[in-house]
């Protein structure tokens, strides 16, 4: 029953070996196995977006991916952005715009926004709202999050908002 196996996960540029069962969700492997508790679990059915991470640069739900499936991919979690003493550009925008309150949805928001930002195309407010519609926030009413991301995109895409 306990068919455990050792896998290697590449997380934030580092290779980690850990022992998992095939059924272990990537979110749990990151949190329990590697102690990377910045990736939060909010629903385990792919709706809330709190567990969003980047897999090879693309946003995905880590509650809907088995840890064993993540082998061979580059995983980026919120811990791979700036740390608390060195917030990255996007994290700073979130802080400046008060784009977080309780902070629980924030790592997922940041990862979704990181993917958007990396596309380096200008987006309307409507585009950003649609792109974020898979990340639920219960505190902010979203305005400040949209403002932070809009400004980050405007300043990096070379185009106006």
């Amino acid at each position: 029953m306990l068919n455990r196996r050792t896998i290697t996960l590449n997380v934030n540029g580092e290779a980690h070996e850990l022992e998992v069962e095939p059924r272990h969700l990537l979110a749990d492997a990151l949190r329990e196995g590697l102690g990377l508790t910045g990736t939060h679990i909010g629903c385990e059915h792919g709706v809330c977006g709190a567990c969003t991470i980047l897999l090879d640069g693309e946003s995905i739900r880590s509650c809907l991916l088995l840890a064993v499936q993540a082998e061979g991919h580059e995983i980026t979690t919120v811990e791979g952005l700036g740390d608390s003493n060195h917030l990255n550009f996007l994290q700073q925008k979130f802080r400046e715009h008060h784009a977080l309150q309780c902070g629980f949805c924030t790592p997922g928001m940041l990862m979704t926004a990181t993917e958007l930002l990396n596309q380096r195309t200008s987006l309307t407010e409507r585009d950003i709202r649609d792109a974020l519609s898979g990340n639920l926030c219960r505190c902010t009413g979203y305005d400040h999050i949209i403002a932070a991301i809009s400004e980050a995109i405007a300043e990096t895409s070379g185009a106006g908002p």
């Binding site: 910045g38 919120v78 979130f94 309780c102």
Partner: peptide
């Protein structure tokens, strides 16, 4: 004033009960 709690929450360094 920018929030004191933000740096930890933005970097995944918060400590929620499940963490």
């Amino acid at each position: 004033v920018q929030r004191k709690e933000d740096p930890r929450l933005l970097s995944g360094s918060g400590r929620y009960a499940a963490d």
